[in-house]
Each structure stands twice: as structure tokens, then as C-alpha cells.
Design a protein around this nucleic acid. Sequence first.
RNA 1: GUGGGUAUAGCUCAAUUGGCUAGAGCGCCAGAUUGUGGUUCUGGAGGUCGUGGGUUCGAUCCCCACUACCCACCCCA
Length: 420
Amino acid sequence: MKISVPKGTKDILPEEMKSWRYIEELFTDVCMNAGYGEIRTPVFEYTNLFNRGVGETTDIVQKEMYTFEDKGGRSLTLRPEGTAGIVRSYIENGMASLPQPVKLFYKITAYRYENVQKGRFREFNQLGAEVLGADSSNADVELISLLGNFFTKLGIGDLKLEINSIGCNICRPAYNEILKEYYKDKIDGMCADCKRRYETNPLRLIDCKEAKCIAASKDVPFIADNLCENCSDHFASLRTGLERLDINYNINKQIVRGLDYYKKTVFEFISNNVGTQGTVCGGGRYDGLIGALGGSDVSGVGFSMGTERLLMELESRGSLPGNEVYPEIYFVTIGEKSYAYARKISYALRKADIYTEMDLLGRSVKAQMKDANRKKAKYVVVMGEEEISMNKAEILVMETGERKEVSLDSIYKRIIEKKV
RNA sequence: GUGGGUAUAGCUCAAUUGGCUAGAGCGCCAGAUUGUGGUUCUGGAGGUCGUGGGUUCGAUCCCCACUACCCACCCCA
């Protein structure tokens, strides 16, 4: 059988890495400038963490996790998302006793066993940030504004922002009763999934895409209209905070999100350019999660975005910069002595952080010239025995074809001082 | 899990209504007076025609299965 990458995974080749680095470095800068510290947690965790953290009723836990047993019989799972591991780390490393809030960001791969299509893979990359230990909507606003800043810098500041509030442990149970009451005489005509959700997670009935279920949900009361006072205030101050920053948003009462841990604020940034998977970034508040995982009762809010989807968005708009790097100088060598001499200068220049190139295959002068041209070297120096013995060299300016004769000794200095 | 499409050179794609050495463009390598790039010309390397089985004198082509990829449903980043 031919060896290939596993389904839903892919190689990121050097050419594409330029775009990846561009996005990741920009994200890093944006986060650092807002006081967020980078964190890395393991690719796999004990399965329990996700069962409890992400939620037993979610699709992710029910059918999408890469779970396996190690040789010691422990059940491990490749992380399907980033937040659970970070919350675990927060608890385990005693971050609750640090000055609060703790602000973190991450760049990770995540794994979900799903059917592959445009914008959806089994191994995918996420950029994310979390604020732990801040109840106030100020934290929600800061995160969304951080994203606004990031997207603007990427040239996609017009991505659509949709927000909603899905209540808390106080208003959710009451709302669930309202929902059950509403669906009571409709549920028989709805799909099998919805019948199950009716018992396990009525909130999810709202965003079912089955035609008959959409029809049944036509006049459904939204939780955003049935919040407790605390949640309602939180949602109002979130909106005020966004408005003060002139951040455009749209309240979408249908957003409920598929992860159980969300409370109060949920939001998404949506694009039209990544297939039917329009969500480039999703996030929300997860008060109670830290407590549920064994920590103290600390609130949290965060987001994650799909790097691949972000790349698709940028690509479809032609907004990816061509940040190519070209050699400052290419040494064309002829024979061993010539190579040794050029290598020495090249080594010295590289130590001074200058990009130099040399042929490693003993190719002809012509082939080396071609290579220099292909790599878009700025200057070429041909170093044959003749030049070395006479302490002379010809610097060729590739763009203009201009040639200049200089002393061999002066090349290093000329390049360093950029006086060629 | 379900449905549709696709699978031929490193890449983008032809062709063979079942028959002899499966082609092109791009890319790669080399040469065009022996040590000088981009244009041009010439030559070369590179394919078990996705995998396995079947029908047939003979299969890259027809039939079946499998796998992968693309798209969609569900759900999500």
C-alpha cells in the first residue's frame, strides 16, 4: 500500500509556511501587546478531562475524539480543542494564586474524527486566547477587541461578528423548562436527534437544520430574552463595551454553540469564503468550568480560531503577503579550493545574519548562475582559481547585469556595509 | 454515519469506442566552442494509468469491491 498522510491531515510545505508564520507571528505580537502569555499544553490528555470539560452530550465527546489506551492501560485522548487543557493547567499549576486575571494565548493542533470537507480536517490548527479569573464583561470585550485588532491587521477587519448570551446555571434551567413547554406538542414531529436533545440538552433544539425542526422552532423563545438579572446585565455591558470601541456586532439569538461549557457570552466571527464552514473564530465565557474540573470557583472566557480557515479567508481575498526572502549574495565556485574560500566568507556573513547561498552539488558555473537567478540573489560573485590567485573578484548585480571588479578581501566588508 | 463527483509523470491535464514503445504543457537535469543567469533551440530522466479481484486471447479502458481526494448533510475551528 502506498504510504500517504492519514485522512484529514496534510503536510505544510516550506512555501506555505511563509503564510503560516505571518499569521502566527502577527497573532503572537497582538497577544503579547495585550499582556497575554503563551502557553503550551500536551497534545494528549487523560480522556476524562474532555469528557468532563467539553461535555458528555457534545458531538465531540460522543463521536469525534481520538481516544486510545497507552501501554499502561490509561485512556488518553488527542485534544479536540484547546480550552480544557489550559484550564487543567491553570488548576494544576496553581495559577489561581497568581495575580488575577491570568491571560494566556496558544497556538495548537487539535484532532477530531470527522468527515473531511472544505475547511474541516481531522488534524487542524487553532490560535486562541483565554482570560481566567475575571467575571466582568470587560474581559469579554478585551478578547473581542483583541480579535478586532488582529483581523484588522490582517486586512479582514470586516469579518462579521455575531454575539449572543446563553445564560448561566440560574437562568438556563428555568429557560429549559420554557423550551420544553414550547416544544412539548411539537417534538413528535421533529427529528430523532432533536427527540434525544429534548431530554439531554434542549438548547440545541434551536439550531437544528432539519426542515421540519426549523419549522417547529419558528416562534421559539430565545434564552437571550429570558436571562436572569446577572446575565442580562453582563450581556448589556458587553454590548456597551463593544459599542464604545466602535466594534460592529450583530446579535444572533440562534447561536448556542456545541460545547457544553459555555455560559453567558458566546460569539463567532463568520466568513463567506471557507465553504459552508463559515465560522473562522468562535468563543465564549465558561464560568463554572474550572470548578467542574476540580479547581476553585473561577470564571473564564476565551476564543479559538481555525488557522486553516483564516488562511482560506486571506487567500480568497488575495491578502497574503509574499514575504519571500532572497539571498544577498550567491557565491559561484569552481573546484575545491574555490569552494573552500567562498565557504569561509559565506560562513562569516551568515554569522553576521546575512543570507548567502552556495552550490552544494559541484555544478557547472552556468547551472550555478541559473540557480542564483532562480533564487533571486541580489549579487553573484564568481570565484575561480584565477580570481583567488589575483585577489580579484567580479561582483555581478543580478537585476541590472552590471559588473564591478573589486578586491577579493573587500567582499565581506562590502556586503556587511551594504556598499557594493 | 449518509449522498454526489473524481483518481493517468513532481504539478495541471490529454488519449486509447479493449490491442503493439500511454502523450502534452509546466517543473527538473544536461547541451548549444571548452568559467557567467533570465529569452530561444535541442536532448534526457521521471508513470506497476489509486489498490485488489473478475470478464477476456489480451484491461489504463468493461464489471465488482476497497481506499483516498473533492463537495454536501450533521456538527464544528
